[in-house]
Design a protein around this nucleic acid. Structure first.
Length: 269
DNA sequence: CGAACGACCTGTTCGC
DNA sequence: TGCGAACAGGTCGTTC
């Protein structure tokens, strides 16, 4: 039992949020909200959804977008340790619960030990990324036009939510390893051809991670408390000092803009 | 304008 | 064994 409630790292990025999104659609689409309980006001000042029905559940980058039948749009961002958990029975007390949405057939718990998660109403004209859907769009042609004005490390560039919506720390390391690019390389020195390699690797990795229902590095769990599978396919993340699975070199861990970054100095240039 | 960094949080891990 | 410091990282605001 404790295992269900015991996690330190979730870090929902695009594949994890997409997983929740798909699972939510199966369960709550067209369902009526019977109650909305805010257990921690820090989550955001929102209320008054009783009687509304769920019109759609979509995703923008790492943000979950829940649209109600009165056109209200709820934006849920899980940040680092936020989770959503579906519970059929309401009696259970779950630690770190931030809010609960009560449906006729069950209850949706938002759980977040570190209280970074946010719930807000859609703001008009909320920021859009240059690559708003990295799964559908080829990155290279668009990004190549702006790389010459930037000097930031390529890893920071990939994680910039104004550039690409949805890539976080885990997948940024994985993508650059797959593309054999040094994460510290300045983005302005990355060629169009290399950007195409990054784009190809990135889209493949994100899609594969979705197919695996996300990465359970320490304890990411899906809507039903199950682990993802992509942690079994990680090539560099959290593999410091272990051999590179491509060239046999040793995986290094450095800091890039304050974030733990894993790469192989032998085959990533 | 872009780049870097602290703040926000709290459970876990590390070092003495 | 115990305690405090360091660490984890998504995003925002501040500073340079």
């Amino acid at each position: 039992m404790r295992e269900i409630f015991f996690w330190s790292v979730c870090m929902p990025e695009l594949p994890e949020v997409e997983t929740l999104c798909r699972q939510l659609r199966e369960i709550v689409l067209n369902e009526e909200i019977r109650g909305f309980e805010v257990r921690d006001a820090k989550i955001g000042a929102v209320s008054g959804f009783t009687g509304r029905k769920i019109f759609s559940v979509t995703r923008y980058g790492k943000t979950l977008v829940i649209k109600l039948d009165d056109d209200t749009e709820l934006l849920l961002h899980l940040r680092m340790t936020g989770r959503l958990l579906w519970q059929v029975h309401h009696q259970e007390v779950i630690p770190y619960t931030r809010f609960v949405i009560i449906f006729p057939r069950g209850n949706l718990f938002c759980i977040d030990p570190r209280r970074f998660a946010t719930l807000a109403l859609q703001k008009n004209g909320s920021g859009k990324a240059i690559i708003s859907d990295p799964l559908q769009t080829r990155w290279a042609p668009v990004l190549h036009e702006i790389t010459c004005t930037r000097k930031t490390p390529v890893k920071s560039f990939l994680m910039d939510q104004r550039v690409i919506a949805g890539i976080g720390n885990i997948y940024a390391s994985e993508i650059l390893h797959a593309a054999a690019i040094d994460p510290m390389r300045s983005i302005c020195e990355v060629t169009l051809r290399e950007l195409e390699t990054i784009s190809e690797a990135g889209r493949n990795i994100l899609q594969r991670a979705i197919d695996c229902r996300g990465t359970s590095v320490s304890d990411w769990r899906d809507l039903f408390g199950s682990r993802g599978e992509y942690q079994n396919e990680l090539k560099v993340y959290r593999r410091e000092s272990l051999p590179c699975l491509r060239c046999g070199g040793t995986i290094s861990r450095i800091r890039v803009n304050g974030r733990g970054t894993y790469f192989c100095a032998h085959c990533q240039q």
